[in-house]
Amino acid sequence: MSDTPLVVVKDLHFSRGETSIFRGVDLRIPRGKITAVMGPSGTGKTTLLKLIGGQLVPDAGQVLIDGADVHALSRKALFTLRRRMGMLFQSGALFSEIDVYENVAFPLRVHTDLPDAMIRDVVLMKLEAVGLRGARKLMPAELSGGMARRVALARAIALDPELILYDEPFVGQDPISMGVLVQLIKRLNEALGLTSIVVSHDIKEALSIADYVYVIADGEVMAHGTPDLLNVDDDPRVSQFVHGEPDGPVPFHYPAVDFLTDILTPGAQS
């Protein structure tokens, strides 16, 4: 049982309007591990998480969580399944009308009948885990970006989920809170036995905590393997991405007509 992957993505196709975002993506997310999904901005990494969470419906292909096809479930069954998942949003997505304490208590209040005293214990425990027990009276608007993300993390683990999805957890963080988040994700994963999917383009951080890595580009899985393997991968596209070279097979320039022609055509306004 523990050898079967928790999440299996099979031949996923998805397009938004005319642009196709995924053209046959296959992923196997092992239990109890941290799996990083990386790729350049705009490759639909967030979209992938939304497909796994069942918020978007793929054009073709399946997402299986613990054997259940997410997109074939009824609305009710889907909401039940989601209680076993936590998701950390890029913006934190804290509920702005209630304070930090109530934000973390929210999943407990709606999904359990625990008495207030016990909810308090759980909330303080989760806030302690992210180091923000002292900030429980603050409103979300009073938090810095890093703090908001840690509160959101506490909320995501409030119900002790099996699977947690991180959407760009490191974006826009100063070095200190970045380090704090990296530590937290790693520690939580070990302490709670979670399965984590980290979507990110911060290569150094993601590689430092991931047990397994998928690199997605152009709607397909470009490479996958352990971080050590990816570091020595000699596919020029993978190596460009992993080593952060500005120009290469993945171009720096947005597609355009030849620069000289563009400059020398005075009539055209744009």
Partner: peptide
């Protein structure tokens, strides 16, 4: 609209609340 823009609605859905 602002709740939607700040992903509060999505996060609520992911918590399992409609």
């Amino acid at each position: 609209g602002l709740m939607k823009a700040t992903e509060q609605l999505t996060s609520m859905e992911m918590i399992g609340v409609d």
